[in-house]
């Protein structure tokens, strides 16, 4: 279990990293926290010619609030997400999601940018940024692009990021008054990739959802922003309402089958998650509400 020989470059700046990425294209891989890249290389699933280590690029670090935007550098480690007071105040969904990412040793190394660029459909942070309606900022030699999180993830390990671009930051709208969030995942063990998970951001007023962005993960090839959530907007949630939303959710999801769960089981768990989200954020309804 040794990686094939590769060349290594420690990029000194974003511009320097981009030069290397343009020169090597698909043959280069960006090393951020290395928590997915290194195992894949050691298993010889991938054998890049060049590793571009961006770990020393200070401009990719930092968490800052600018107006109503929370900007998070791509190199922000999961442990920093977990501990940041700014994130806890303005995007608590991320704080909660980060706690579900693997184990402390991995959270100490893994980065937000790395997780998003890797785009594992079962991981927590891609769904969270979709739920938060965040913007992914990428840099290329022709300048920066801003991509809505909902447009960024295009498939299993596939994103709108080209091989010549670098993900540099994530911009999250700061939480508004009355905002609420829900995060839960079903995993066989603490720290495992989820069998099914939900990251949701909502606005709750007078016991109703006025807004609900429910991003499911591990139930498709990318985070799925459920259209079924619209069935729960501005309506008193009764068992019938929930059943209709659940049915819609079941129809719009097309989950994969794997060793942990059949497609039917994933669909079932997604429905449970939607119900538990409603129950957690609106409280148990009076007359036999969400389970």
């Amino acid at each position: 279990m040794k990686a094939s020989a590769f060349s290594y470059a420690r990029a000194t700046s974003v511009a320097n990293a981009l030069e290397l990425l343009v020169a090597y294209g698909d043959k280069a891989k960006v090393l951020s926290g290395g928590q997915s890249l290194m195992p894949a290389m050691n298993l010889r699933l991938i054998s890049p010619e060049l590793i571009v280590d961006i770990g020393e690029i200070t401009e990719l670090r930092g968490i800052a609030v600018r107006g109503d935007i929370l900007s998070i550098g791509a190199l922000t480690r999961h442990v920093d997400l977990l501990r940041s007071p700014e994130i806890a105040a303005h995007a608590p969904l991320l704080t909660e999601a980060a706690a579900h990412v693997a184990h402390p040793a991995i959270r100490n190394r893994g980065t937000l940018g790395g997780s998003l660029a890797h785009a594992d459909p079962a991981s927590e942070l891609p769904a969270s940024v979709v739920a938060l309606n965040a913007t992914i900022v990428v840099s290329g030699q022709t300048g920066e692009r801003r991509i809505a999180a909902g447009e960024f993830f295009t498939g299993i390990y596939e994103t709108a990021l080209s091989a010549q671009e670098l993900l540099i930051a994530v911009e999250v709208p700061v939480a508004q008054k009355n905002s609420a969030h829900f995060f839960h995942e079903f995993a066989r063990r603490h720290g495992d990739y989820a069998i099914a998970g939900l990251a949701a951001q909502a606005i709750v007023q007078a016991g109703l959802f006025t807004e609900l962005r429910a991003a499911f993960f591990a139930v498709g090839d990318r985070p799925i922003l459920a259209k079924a959530a619209t069935k729960l907007i501005n309506i008193r949630i009764t068992p019938a309402v929930l059943a209709e939303a659940s049915a819609t959710l079941g129809e719009e999801l097309d989950p994969q089958e794997d060793q942990q769960a059949s497609a039917a089981m994933r669909r079932h768990l997604a429905k449970i998650l939607l119900a538990r989200c409603a129950s957690a954020l609106l409280g148990p309804p009076a007359a036999g509400g969400p389970v």
Binding site: R188, R189, H190, G191
Partner: peptide
Amino acid sequence: LTNANMADYLVPMSGE
């Protein structure tokens, strides 16, 4: 053998 790794073969961990 389709799960010959520590991610897919689930050993019991202290959390559970």
